[in-house]
Nucleic acid binder design. Structure first.
Lengths: 235, 235
DNA sequence: GCAACGCTTCGTTGGCGAGCGAAACGTCAC
DNA sequence: GTGACGTTTCGCTCGCCAACGAAGCGTTGC
C-alpha cells in the first residue's frame, strides 16, 4: 500500500492534454483519435500515446472500426469522478461580467455525462417526487405510480426507458448543489426529450445548456417550476 | 475554457508524494507538516513545497499553532472526490490470498473521511430506513420519528448530533456499492459510537475496519443485520 | 539570552515524460 | 495493385518539476 489507489487515476486525468480529451469525451460520445488530437491541439503521435495510457488506466474504452479507432469514456463512473473533481476546483476568479454570466448559466443547467445537471435538474427531481412520479428510496429514487402520465407531458416515453436494461433511475449527486438529481436511463431520456422538444438548447461552451422560453413554459406547465426563481432553492 | 476545471485538482492529487499525504489525511485528522513528510518519505523541504501547492489548490487547509503547522483536508468534498477517483481505479490484480482477503474486508467495512462506508454502512442505512429512524428524501435522508431510541441502542446520542451545526444527515454514495449510506454529523457519530463500543476496530491498513464478534451481536440485536451474509446485498 | 526545534525559502541538480517527425502498419477507394 | 488516409511505433530532444542541502525565520524551553 505504498501508493494510494486514486493516485494513478488522478495522474492520468491531470495532464493538460489528456484532461482536454477527457473533457471532450465527457458527454459520452465516441470520438476518433484524430479528432481528439485536434481538440487537444497536439500531434496525432502524441495523442496516440496519451490515449493508450488512458485506455491502460481504464479511463477510456476503444472500439476499432475500419481505419478509425473510436475512444469513449469507460463508463458513467469515470464521468462522475471527473465531475466530482471539478466540484473541488477553486471557484474560478471572475475576471469579467461575461465570466460571471457564463458561470451562472452553468450552475443553472448543464449536461453531466449523458444526463441533466444543475439547479434545473435538482428542481425537476424534486418536482417529480412531489407529483409522485418518483419516490425517494434508500438507494436514491425509484419509479412511482404517477410516473407515466407526468413524464409523457414533457415528451418522455416511459416504456422506452423501462425497456432499457440499464438501471432505470439512478441518483447522481450534484456537488455544486449537494443535492440529488436524476441519472441513469431516465436521466438520459429526460435530457434527450428536453433537448428534442427545444425546451433546452446546447450552448457553444461544451456542457452548457440554455432554457428556452418554450422550455420555461413547459416546465412551468408540467411541474410548476419557475426557472427564473431557482436561486431560492438549495439549502 | 482551454483547460478543464478538473485538471488542476487531478494534477495535484496525482503526484505520488502528494497522493500519499492526501491519503494520510483522508480520515479528516490534522497532521503536522513533518509527520506528513515522514509519511511520504521525503525531506521536509520537499513536503513543504507540496503542501503549499495543495493549499493553493484548495485541497488542504492550514492551521498554524506554535511552531507547528497542521494540515488537513479542506473538507468532505475533497475526501469524496478522492474516494470517487479510487472507485475508477482498476481492480488491483490479486496477487495473493492475503490480497483477496484484505480487499474483501475493505469492501465490507472501511472509514470514508469521518464516517463509515462499505457494505456494512449500506446495510445500516437500509436498516435505519426500515426501522423508521431515517426517511428517504429527495435530498438523501432525513431524521425520522423513531430515530432517538433506535440510535440509542447502538450508543449514539441523538441530542449531540442535532446540536452539531453541520448538516445532520447527509447521503454519501459508495461507488463500490453504488448505494447510499449515511454521512454528515450522524455518519460521524455512528462511526465514533461503533468504534467506541468496540463493535468496530481499526485494522493496521489505513482505512480498514473489522467487525468484532461483539459488533456482530450488536448489529444483529439492534437491526437484524447478519454481517456474515452481507454479500447477498447489492444490486 | 541562547540553543533546539519546526517549518519555509532559496538555488541547484537530475530524471521523467510530453512533444514531434519519420517510418511502419492496417484499411479503404478506385 | 497502388495510392491516400488514419493510427500506431520508434527514436530523439527539451522543458518542467520533484528532490535535496543550506540558510533564514519564528517559536519553545531552560
Amino acid at each position: 500500500m505504498s501508493e494510494p489507489d486514486f493516485a494513478a487515476v488522478a495522474a492520468l486525468a491531470g495532464e493538460p492534454a489528456r484532461a482536454i480529451m477527457l473533457a471532450t469525451l465527457f458527454d459520452g460520445r465516441a470520438l476518433a483519435a484524430g479528432e481528439l488530437a485536434r481538440a487537444a491541439g497536439i500531434a496525432p503521435a502524441t495523442a496516440s500515446a496519451h490515449l493508450g495510457k488512458l485506455a491502460e488506466g481504464g479511463l477510456v474504452r476503444v472500439r476499432a472500426q475500419g481505419r478509425h479507432r473510436y475512444y469513449q469514456l469507460a463508463g458513467p463512473v469515470v464521468a462522475h469522478a471527473l465531475e466530482t473533481l471539478g466540484a473541488v476546483a477553486r471557484p474560478v476568479p471572475v475576471r469579467s461580467l461575461g465570466d460571471a454570466l457564463r458561470m451562472q448559466r452553468l450552475r443553472r443547467a448543464r449536461s453531466c455525462y449523458n444526463h441533466l445537471a444543475g439547479e434545473i435538474a435538482v428542481a425537476i427531481a424534486q418536482a417529480l417526487v412531489r407529483h409522485g412520479a418518483l419516490e425517494p428510496d434508500d438507494d436514491g429514487f425509484r419509479l412511482g405510480a404517477g410516473a407515466r402520465p407526468l413524464l409523457a407531458r414533457i415528451g418522455v416515453d416511459l416504456a422506452a426507458v423501462v425497456r432499457d436494461d440499464r438501471a432505470h433511475v439512478r441518483a447522481c449527486v450534484d456537488w455544486t448543489q449537494r443535492r440529488l438529481h436524476v441519472a441513469g436511463a431516465l436521466g438520459a431520456a429526460l435530457l434527450d426529450a428536453l433537448l428534442g422538444s427545444g425546451a433546452l438548447q446546447r450552448r457553444r461552451e461544451p456542457r452548457a445548456l440554455d432554457v428556452t422560453p418554450s422550455g420555461d413554459a413547459l416546465l412551468t406547465a408540467a411541474f410548476g417550476i419557475d426557472s427564473t426563481a431557482l436561486d431560492a432553492l438549495g439549502a
